[in-house]
Amino acid sequence: MIHKKTVLLAVGALLFALLSVLAGLMSGAAGLTLTELWDAFADTQRATAAGRIVWYVRVPRVAGAMICGAALAVSGAVIQGVLGNPLASPGMIGINAGAGFAVVLCAACGILGGWRLSAAAFLGAFLTALTVSAAAHRFGASDSIVILIGAAVNSLLGACSDTVTTLVPDVSIQSTFFRAGDFSSVTAQSLRVPSVIILCALGLLLFLTNELDVLGLGEETARGLGMHTGRMRVLFLLLAALLAGAAVSTAGLLSFIGLLVPHAVRRLTGGGAGMLLPMCAVLGGAFTVLCDTAARTLFAPYELPVGILLAFLGAPFFLFLLLRGRGGQDHA
């Protein structure tokens, strides 16, 4: 049975997403009214300036923000569930940095897009996720220790990326873009591979929401319920790394989406992963589109990389969570 609250939340989230997409498509250096936007969509030949702006610039950018935001928010929710740590997210524990390092390496080798870039980003993200998870599992690390391990991994991978950009100066432009996190260079072509990866991973995760909930009950309880916890943990990390890797290969190091959105959604839904993951996907995407729209219009004619705006929003929120000492999950 579907509860009334669930329906209301789903409708509200979809409405919010629709409004954020409209705001993203209409706002920018050349502002468009709803009528102009409608006409631009009808202009399939891209004959008018508005048609070209919408089809070549705004649609890929908004779609990229929507897809990457959804991927990072869901990836954060999954990682928090797997590690049992409300402070964890792809940015905090170094998964994004792992993907970023792989992307910088690819750029140094002349690979600037396509499936090879996405595969490398995934591999970097997955290896980092496995390392942090293994360390947390082996040492029974507390919430704060996992975050410190993540900080160390972030620093190490950042240093590795810096070394590559120093040794291969041609990569530095790519590196700056990746460090800041930005959707300005997203095109329909560059979105193809990452969006397929993200949609497949999201689809699979929606089938595994009960597994994620049970894993979140703790190792012993999950095993007592018949789960192969080791295998399941690796599968979830793999999917989270796929999401984060694909997002990073598209838009660079976007931090805090995986932390901010799952916490906000948990406050709204108060429930398990069955509602958490789809809501994170919709609201994470919408939130990123709004942030990107704000970042490119607030200081017009200058565009602020959206990663900087996210850091301004996310860092105080992280401090708030840290000071509060808990974030929806706790230990008995």
Binding site: G84, N210, D213, V214, G216, L217, G218, E220, T221, G224, L225, G226, M227, R266, G270, G271, G272, G274, L276, G328, Q329, D330, H331, A332
Partner: peptide, 25 residues
């Protein structure tokens, strides 16, 4: 065999959802 451990996390879910996960196997 059902096993209830001593120390448990407090997951972000409702009572109904937790009890339903008893049907997981």
């Amino acid at each position: 065999m059902a096993y209830l451990s001593q120390g448990r996390r407090i997951p972000a879910m409702t009572v109904g959802e937790l009890v339903l996960h008893g049907r997981f196997p």
